[in-house]
Amino acid sequence: MTGFTTMIRKYRHILTIALALAGIGIMAYYDYCDTACSYLRGDICGIDLKWVGMAFMAAVIVFAAFKQTAFVRMFLAAGLGVEVHLYAFQLQNDVYCPFCLAFSVLLIASFVVNYEVPSAWRGDRRRMWLYFLGEVNFPMFKINKLPLLLISVLAYLLILVTFNGSVTPAYGQEPIKGIPALGKGPYEIIIFADYFCPPCRRIDTKAEPLFKEILVTGQVQLAFIDVPFASAAPVYAKYYLYAVNADPGVNNVFHVRRVLFNAAQDKRIQKENALIDYLKEQNIKWLAMDEKSVFPLLSASIKEHKVDTTPTCFIKYSKDNVKKYVGDDKIWEGLTQFKDHLLTQKK
């Protein structure tokens, strides 16, 4: 055990850098989105938590590279305090982010790699609780035996007042008219998507020919529900409704969705005026309507189906046979199975 500890101490800076790089990689991958975008969101003073996490690990790398162990340990202790609050937030809302949990495991591992038994324990065992996370010394600031628990508590209090998190997407508007849908029939398909979500764009593009094919059968009703994950999503939903109000045809609906996905992910448009200019540039026609009468329906459907991830698809074969698919790969499997079912029924 002593040999293992000695080896850890010898290579602790390299291990710390490797773990921090892995943390940055996880957050970068999360930012891009795997096969689904989760609606567990958070920011600190308006800065997305993913970017805060990457900046945090970058700072750890810099200090570790220059072998500033005291600063590394202080940063990691602060990170532990932040993670306590983020864990509590996920537990409270019963929604968990695998990327965030993996990031926290790497942070804890980094802390363990840099842990040192505090010298304060040798002087007074009664203070063990205060120093159980360790201590740091900053001679240049004339600070000695600073308990890392204090750093963790301060970080916890800071995140408590600066963190803004949400798990339930909603439009927050009032009463009702109807959600636009394509086709009619005994079967129903509902696609919950976000124009800023890469997997949503992938499945929308991939499934478009299939959607058109099954709509021709006259057996299917297809509805797209825009989930307001991104802050600009309600504006995009508004102009989708306007465009469908002007021309509810199948080809126009899919064309409008392609343009909106391009605007969100290629052009990264956030402001309404910029979106209007882009839609005009793409020759998208729209007819204004009372979108406030539709937004509550969208929110109600999101809540009813307990959607916290995009893309999510529900295929309703019957009242008692409803199948749910999450992520573009699973949705594609579900849609192809449904298409096969339609062909079987036709025979």
Rank of each mutant, 00 (worst) to 15 (best):
E83K: 07
I61S: 13
W129E: 10
V60Y: 03
R73L: 01
M57I: 12
Q92L: 14
C97A: 09
H85T: 13
N144M: 06
R127Q: 13
M140R: 07
I143M: 09
C33S: 14
Y32V: 11
N137H: 12
G81R: 01
E135L: 12
P118V: 03
L154R: 10
A70M: 02
A55M: 08
A109D: 02
V105Q: 04
V153N: 15
P118R: 09
S110N: 04
M57C: 12
A109G: 08
F132E: 03
Y131A: 06
F99P: 12
M57A: 01
Y30C: 11
Y96E: 11
G42P: 10
L148C: 10
R126Y: 10
F132M: 06
D31H: 13
Q92I: 09
N93G: 14
Y115S: 04
L80C: 03
F132Y: 14
L40E: 03
I108E: 01
A58R: 13
R41Y: 14
N114R: 01
C100E: 06
Y30K: 11
V62M: 06
L148W: 11
A59L: 13
L106C: 05
A77E: 01
Y96H: 12
I151D: 05
D48Q: 01
D94E: 15
A155E: 14
L133H: 10
F138I: 02
L150I: 13
Y30E: 04
A70S: 02
A65C: 04
L86S: 06
C33F: 11
V72W: 01
A102I: 15
V60P: 00
K50P: 05
V136K: 05
I47T: 05
Y115C: 08
L107V: 00
L149N: 13
D94C: 15
G53P: 02
W51I: 04
V153M: 09
L106F: 06
Q92K: 09
V95E: 08
S110C: 10
V82G: 10
V113M: 02
R127G: 10
P118T: 05
L130A: 08
V84A: 12
C45G: 11
R41L: 11
M140A: 14
V113F: 00
F56V: 06
F66T: 05
G53N: 09
E116P: 11
P98D: 07
F75P: 00
S152F: 04
A70C: 10
G81H: 02
D48E: 06
A78W: 03
A120V: 15
M54E: 08
A109I: 04
V117L: 14
A65W: 04
A58G: 14
F75S: 00
